[in-house]
Design a protein around this nucleic acid. Sequence first.
DNA 1: TTAGATGCAAAGTATTTGCAACCCT
DNA 2: AGGGTTGCAAATACTTTGCATCTAA
Lengths: 146, 146
Amino acid sequence: MTGDNEIFKNALKNSGLSNTKSRRQLFNIFVNSGHKPLSPAEIVNFSNETMDRSTIYRNLETFQKLNIIRPVSIGWKIKYELSEEFHGHHHHMTCIKCGKITTIHDDTDIDLAIKNLSAKRGFQAIEHTLDIRGYCNTCQNFKNPG
Amino acid sequence: MTGDNEIFKNALKNSGLSNTKSRRQLFNIFVNSGHKPLSPAEIVNFSNETMDRSTIYRNLETFQKLNIIRPVSIGWKIKYELSEEFHGHHHHMTCIKCGKITTIHDDTDIDLAIKNLSAKRGFQAIEHTLDIRGYCNTCQNFKNPG
DNA sequence: TTAGATGCAAAGTATTTGCAACCCT
DNA sequence: AGGGTTGCAAATACTTTGCATCTAA
């Protein structure tokens, strides 16, 4: 926890940005979310009027640029979660039918392949999101939309 | 093109859904987008009042369930593009700094690793999106947000 | 014929903006 | 002190909903 805070403060400092009350608060909302991805609007509600909406939106954008948070597409919407520096690396498997999301933590082969590919292209990969879509165990035999 | 249309029509028919004017129109917007991912709002504008907004939103949801389109997280927003059946398989590399998106078509190793992983989990993978974030060639030496 | 699809209209949410006041460094 | 940040307030933009009408099969 304390370590996370250091990383956060340094990210701001290294980019010459201020360590403000709002930014600390926003960061804490993510920390306290239990790693559940949040939409901008959900954060507005969570914050319970302690920050203005516009401040939240502006800082979400800032955090994203600093790679403090990262976007995840969850079904129909986009949400944000702490980036890997805080969160640990993982991937998602989403069922097209029932919407169930499974989180995956071990995928060395995939990560290696991604690393190689990026290097080949001269792209400096910082992190990646992988969303696998298909049918979960339960839904494999009932594919009609319902 | 004609082949794509067949796939589209069959997708509807196989699920017992009607092949309506609106749906054909929406499908064509994607075809004509030159494979650029589109947000719901962009589509509303594109459609130029030929369809009602509500029809567009409802059909986007339908198309997604039928796997005609798929979501892609592009920076701040979520967008849609034709699914692989129409589009061909590919991945995105997005620059955190300038937002530039590079499309990648050859990544056998990654795809193989994903296939293996899914199999191991009893998940029937239909498709996947991979978004690699980092710094593009140009931005690698200028990492401050600006 | 008729279940499903659409348009309309309005309500409900979400996001962005300019500017004056404020607070980090 | 001084520029980056915030709050405020209002304008925009986006998304959803119910219901009557229409249309594809």
